[in-house]
Design a protein around this nucleic acid. Structure first.
Lengths: 387, 387
DNA sequence: AAACATTGTTTCCTTCAGAAATTAACAGCC
DNA sequence: GGCTGTTAATTTCTGAAGGAAACAATGTTT
């Protein structure tokens, strides 16, 4: 019952601290981790020896009293990670360094969603990205019911996959240790470690676009949950493809907004046209955006009330026309957030598709760092040296 | 960042395992905790020496091969705990043993909600319950914004308290180490350890009654969140006293149902009358219940979708007329639970007020066991011997 | 009685991290 | 330049904690 409490070794804590907050001195690591100075010193040495960390003095540091601090830097080039985001018609792949910075990105169209065909494209893209670089791990993300632990895709609506052992297949095709994760959750993890979620231990990311997704981090742990898209916020709302009614997704997804705008205008619009019409002041179009904004605001409020994150990041393709419903979102959130939930901070961030692929890569980084070692196809060798 | 990971000592793990799953043999403790047999043996001895555990052979065990197991039992009488639940007009208090079993219960009316008056009643009741028994700890629960860590009540609407250092006050008045917690969360903790939540690590408890409350346990940790009552499930719903609109509480709270029934009948009803009318088949009254049931079902679905507990316990005063809207609840939950959330199990349990007081006591038990040692007024002495 | 299966214990060992003393590397000051 | 004060980092020692594996205990089965 307490067995699943992860006891994180000092080396991992130290490295993660430098990675997320670095460059920082050992003293600062001490403060951030709660470890003793001795433990930090001892943990740092093997990390330096193995080439993961380096000491580099800060030239521009103001002269202060006492022995100058020696900042620790992560050696970004020590290892590379591939991240792949699958959509119904495209493979987006990136290579990041150990610091989670994207070094190379590739987009490749998908002409078939058959498992074997997708695997082949993925493998080909990965070969291209990996060549000449020391790639430690590959992360693949896609929407749907994805089980990281077992490497299985239970169901992916866009690809129409059921029970596909994706991690094993990709690992076999690429020769790389492979991890899979739900796409929104992967993005959440990346934002938590390297983006707007740095510094908080309880954090939510909401994506609005084709679907409405949500990733949740509580006590620094990613939850295998967050199905915000089909939370109902209107008992008498329109039917949703999921069989429910009044789902957030049925009220605020891109296609719903677009359909609404097209209806009031009387002709089929593109999203760009709809946004432009809304901005130029067409009241009926604007009202459609406002309705969606209210729905999104209520959805965010549900997250704030129920889960109580310190911060919520709102992102997604729909953020493009954000100015059209920003007020509604914030109003609905403020009106509906109760008690302590009202302290929840809302950050809006556009995150392009490359970032989603990067999210998949960060899943790999995290796995390497924390050594949960769940990557399929890995040799089981510990990559961060303990000694 | 990983600093808050609780490293739970072997002794605590062992004791908690026996407490929650006992009587069990050392081997079974080994299996449940993931500890080595050696560690279990070593952890058990001081617990037996200190009188917390005893070995007692199982007479009725079927004869099996090998050395017979020696089941470990918790010595229920080794320590007692007081639990107090505060409402606007009553103090409910219980004394439980170490196993969380209620040994004695007392109800006492409150004639004033002034802090000093309430403290006095609580102290008096506790004196009566404690006399002649070795009471380790006192837990107090009440609705509202309660901070266990600091012992402060930030806001309690029913008592109309703001920023009351309740734990310190009660501790001073009773002389007992005192913990406070939100009432729903206390009940959640109790159900998780001793009730319908045993065996799952992710668990939610929803109470329907005067208000709609929710407690969440994720990865065996209680979240300081769960404001389900003011999650909106109807954009155009009625205004709620919280300033929001379409809140679950504004659609499914007792008073709302009662007001609805009274309205359709044309005279002021009591809840008992309303339930009786509904059962006898009055279609209009029945419809009111059904509407509330649908709202509750959607609320449960929101919890299932967003947080993904393995099990949800539904309880509260309103469960009294449960048969009147059971169908609606289950239907709405089933219709709206998406993907993995559909696997969530719903358990309906009536939990009388005594159980709420017991919940407060269990908070104390948990605190003792896990030695978070947050109890106000405690001497800081470790109660479970490590050596 | 011998073989066997299972539970529980002991001994030894490794790992890990903290306490506290110590060393390192500066700035300021006379 | 040498002293002092200050902060950073390291070293050495120590203790806690739990795992591996051999071993003891206690029954059943044959």
């Amino acid at each position: 019952m307490f067995a699943m409490v992860n006891v994180v070794s000092a080396a991992v804590q130290v490295f993660a601290a430098v990675l997320r907050h670095g460059p920082i001195s050992r003293v600062e690591v001490t403060a951030r981790t709660g470890l003793s100075p001795a433990a930090v010193t001892k943990a740092v040495r093997p990390l330096v020896d193995a080439g993961y960390l380096v000491e580099r003095p800060d030239d521009r540091a103001p002269a202060r009293l006492g022995r100058p601090a020696m900042p620790l830097h992560v050696v970004a080039e020590r290892a590379y990670f591939l991240g792949v985001k699958l959509t119904a018609d495209e493979v987006i792949a990136v290579r990041t360094d150990l610091c989670g910075v994207t070094r190379e990105a590739v987009h490749r169209p998908l002409t078939s969603t058959a498992v074997a065909d997708v695997i082949e494209v993925v493998a080909d893209v990965c070969r291209g990205l990996a060549v000449g670089h020391d790639v430690a791990c590959l992360g693949v993300s896609l929407s749907g019911d994805v089980l990281r632990d077992t490497g299985m895709v239970r169901f992916s609506p866009f690809l129409n996959w059921r029970d596909v052992p994706l991690a094993d297949l990709v690992s076999a095709a690429t020769g790389l240790p492979t991890l899979i994760e739900n796409d929104v959750r992967a993005l959440t993890v990346a934002e938590h470690w390297f983006g707007a979620g740095v510094g908080v231990s309880s954090f939510a990311l909401v994506t609005a676009g084709t679907g409405i997704g949500c990733g949740l981090v509580v006590n620094d742990v990613l939850l295998p949950a967050g199905e915000l898209g089909h939370v109902a916020i209107d008992v008498d709302g329109p039917e949703c493809y999921c069989g429910g009614r009044g789902c957030v997704e049925a009220l605020a997804a891109d296609r719903v907004v677009l359909a609404g705008c097209s209806a009031v205008v009387g002709r089929q619009l593109t999203m760009a046209e709809a946004i432009s019409l809304g901005r130029s002041g067409d009241p009926a179009v604007h009202a459609v955006f406002e309705r969606a904004g209210r729905a999104l605001g209520l959805a965010l409020a549900a997250v704030a009330n129920l889960v109580g994150p310190e911060r919520i990041v709102l992102t997604g393709e729909a953020v493009g026309g954000y100015d059209l419903y920003a007020d509604q979102i914030r109003q609905a959130l403020a009106a509906q957030a109760f008690g302590a939930a009202a302290a929840c901070e809302l950050v809006v961030r556009p995150l392009p598709f490359d970032e989603w692929a990067r999210g998949a890569a960060v899943v790999g980084i995290q796995d390497l760092i924390t050594r949960s070692g769940a990557a399929r196809g890995s040799t089981g060798a510990v990559t961060l040296p303990a000694r």
